[in-house]
């Protein structure tokens, strides 16, 4: 019975893995995009000629987890944009489902929080499925290479959503520090709770 059970588990594992796999894995080439920013201008990764990499964050106004991380996302940009790793925030929700994530609301939120990073809207929801983002916030750390931006880290921002002062591991910071130092990233994928992206 035990063997049968583990065999079943194994088969279901194979099955679910092959059917639910979508989006990028570590080492994949990430697509560029041209998305509208809150200032009306369009932003692409290729605009950042000198970027060594990117912190692409799928986030929004309306998810409590995303809100809890707003200041930390801003802090990441303050720290790493000047080092060549800017934050690019993308709002992936359908605004008809979540009116609180409209361009106007994004603009207001960015102004009141003093965001210094681009806050783009994934109009038509074309980009987040390519990345495989499922929730907000959902982070992709990319490294610029001669062949394009390569995915180096996928997951959460750190290991304590409740309290930034109690964080033991800053996953994103560790990933970037490793890239800077040319060493392997210890944790290339982490899991974090978030709000499902609204269709």
């Amino acid at each position: 019975m035990n063997i049968l059970y583990s065999l079943l588990l194994f088969i279901s594992f194979l099955f679910t893995n092959s059917t639910t796999y979508q989006g990028y894995d570590i080492g994949d080439l990430a697509t560029d995009f041209k998305l509208e920013n809150i200032d009306g201008k369009f932003v692409s990764l290729s605009d950042f000629k000198d970027a060594k990499g990117f912190i692409v964050v799928f986030t929004c106004n309306t998810c409590p987890y995303a809100v809890l991380y707003e200041d930390r996302i801003e802090a990441l940009n303050k720290k790493y944009a000047i080092q060549g790793y800017p934050v690019i925030a993308i709002m992936p929700n359908n605004v008809e489902t979540k009116p609180g994530d409209s361009m106007e609301s994004m603009r207001k939120r960015a102004l009141s929080k003093g965001f210094t990073f681009p806050y783009l809207m994934d109009v038509g929801q074309k980009i987040y499925p390519l990345y495989g983002a499922t929730k907000t916030p959902h982070v992709y750390v990319l490294e610029s290479t001669s062949s394009g931006p390569i995915v180096r880290y996928i997951g959460g921002i750190d290991d304590n959503y409740k309290d930034a002062s109690l964080v033991k591991t800053n996953y994103v910071e560790e990933a970037i520090e490793s890239l800077k130092n040319g060493v392997a990233i210890k944790q290339t994928k982490t899991k974090a709770i978030g709000c499902s992206i609204k269709l």
């Binding site: 679910t16 499922t134 929730k135 997951g155 899991k191 974090a192 709770i193 978030g194």
Partner: peptide
């Protein structure tokens, strides 16, 4: 969260 989400299910991203 990263310590327990995979224990609920390996395919759960956290949404």
């Amino acid at each position: 969260m990263n310590s327990w989400i995979p224990k609920v299910d390996l395919n759960w991203s956290g949404a």
